[in-house]
């Protein structure tokens, strides 16, 4: 069974870059979506091992997604990495307060996300 990672990020370019980066880690399969709604639909269908989410999205925002995941007994153990934009200190703190395990500030180096992915999937 591959590790399943959900990537929620509305910019196609970043989404693909993140997906390519973490799929370069063997055994990792990325599920991408640009919409929070779509993410809500995917959650009950897969057991994700990690969720990486942006804050700003067109339908529901990333904080709401974190809250949803962390309050729900079915998903609350899934580690969550939140991606925030430079200078959005407030959003970042809220994300961590809601239970995100880690945050990344855009723009970030692909290595950083690969590093975090390995850490939270416990890949040596």
């Amino acid at each position: 069974m591959p590790w399943k990672v959900l990537i929620v990020e509305d910019s196609r370019a970043s989404r693909e870059l993140i997906a390519a980066t973490i799929e370069a880690i063997d055994g990792v399969r990325a599920f991408c979506t640009g919409s929070g709604f779509e993410a809500l639909k995917l959650l009950p269908r897969h057991r994700f091992d990690l969720i990486i989410t942006d804050i700003n999205m067109p339908d529901i925002n990333g904080l709401e997604l974190i809250n949803f995941v962390k309050k729900n007994p079915n998903y609350r153990d899934t580690p969550l990495i939140v991606i925030t934009t430079e200078g959005r200190e407030q959003d970042r703190q809220k994300g961590l307060a809601l239970g995100a395990a880690e945050y990344l500030i855009k723009p970030f180096e692909p290595e950083q996300i690969a590093e975090l992915t390995r850490r939270y999937l416990r890949i040596a």
Partner: peptide
């Protein structure tokens, strides 16, 4: 804002 309710809904509801 559109906030998904974190309370698990009945069955397949949200």
């Amino acid at each position: 804002s559109t906030l998904p309710s974190a309370e698990p809904g009945a069955g397949t509801g949200i």
